[in-house]
């Protein structure tokens, strides 16, 4: 495999985690402009675990995801109740708060000859666990996609469970969901924590691939793109966001002559799609028809 192709695979894989986290919240009727905040929380936490405290790669990344999930649960404290515009505004403020706060985070320790750790606007350099552990980039790419596959299967399983039904119920009509006795608050907190964990997992994987992470990685455009990916693929299946990412990074970016115009084309694609299919390509109705069709074939 060429280096470019491997790096493309890794980027799609990492971005897919963030898109999946935005997707989960969209199902619940929440449009988050702040998932990039959980992405960098996961990245910083995983980086600290491996680079500063010498944890091995896998537990370090897992710990990063856990910290981000915890962040999501705390975020749910004030943000479980707001919806619509209020949630959008609050999550945007949260994402930016994380970015601005990281500009002031200095937490360095001596590791061998180097000072390692977050250094304000200079970011957090020297997260080398991937390379010191001798894992090749290709193996890492395969690992990321394996993790993504497992995550997708787990997400699909959860979404088919009663919890997934609950999520969609809240997304459609929160009051009606409450009046049938659904523990709405508990479902919302768990979804916000889960979404935080997914974004944080992407962050931890990213930090170890790039070997550094900086406050700029919490750019709001990451959150905006993740939302767009979730939408363009469609809200009917967790594959939707992956399709969105692959379409943007994999397809549009590989046309070199489109280089600078990518966001303009992609933005236009989203805009046009919304006019004809407001819930994305594979929306609930399409997925329902598709699964019926497949079931019929089996009989």
């Amino acid at each position: 495999m060429s280096d470019y192709f491997v790096s493309l695979l890794i980027r799609i894989g990492i971005e897919a985690f963030v898109a999946l986290s935005a997707y989960l919240l969209l199902l619940m009727g929440r449009m988050s402009f702040g998932q990039q905040g959980f992405f960098v929380i996961g990245a910083y936490a995983a980086g600290l675990a491996t680079a500063l405290y010498g944890m091995p790669l896998l537990p370090g990344v897992a710990l990063g995801a856990l910290v981000a999930a915890l962040g999501g649960a705390l975020f749910a404290g004030p943000m479980a109740a707001p919806r619509g515009l209020a949630f959008a505004a609050g999550s945007l403020a949260f994402g930016e708060l994380v970015r601005v706060a990281l500009l002031d985070l200095y937490f360095q320790g001596q590791v061998g000859p180097d000072l390692i750790g977050p250094a304000g606007p200079d970011g957090f350099r020297g997260i080398r666990a991937l390379f010191t552990s001798g894992v090749s980039v290709t193996t890492y790419a395969v690992g990321i996609w394996l993790a993504l596959g497992v995550t997708l299967l787990a997400t699909a399983f959860f979404l088919r469970s009663r919890w997934g039904e609950a999520l969609r119920m809240i997304g459609e009509d929160e009051e009606a969901a409450a009046t049938v006795g659904l523990p709405v608050r508990r479902v919302k907190v768990s979804a916000l924590a889960g979404a935080g964990g997914l974004a944080g997992l992407g962050g931890g994987l990213f930090a170890h691939y790039a070997t550094y992470v900086e406050p700029g990685h919490a750019d709001v455009m990451l959150g905006v793109h993740s939302l767009a990916y979730a939408f363009i693929g469609g809200l009917g299946t967790p594959l939707g966001p992956i399709i969105g990412v692959a379409l943007d990074i994999g397809f549009l970016e590989s046309f070199r002559f489109l280089a600078g115009y990518r966001m303009i084309i992609f933005g236009g694609l989203v805009m046009g799609l919304l006019i004809v299919r407001p819930r994305g390509l594979l929306d609930e109705v399409a997925v329902h028809r598709l699964s019926r069709f497949l079931m019929r074939g089996r009989r």
Partner: peptide, 12 residues
């Protein structure tokens, strides 16, 4: 956006 049967169960 849920099926008729899912509406009756409604997460219960």
């Amino acid at each position: 956006r849920l099926t008729v049967a899912q509406n009756v169960r409604a997460g219960r």
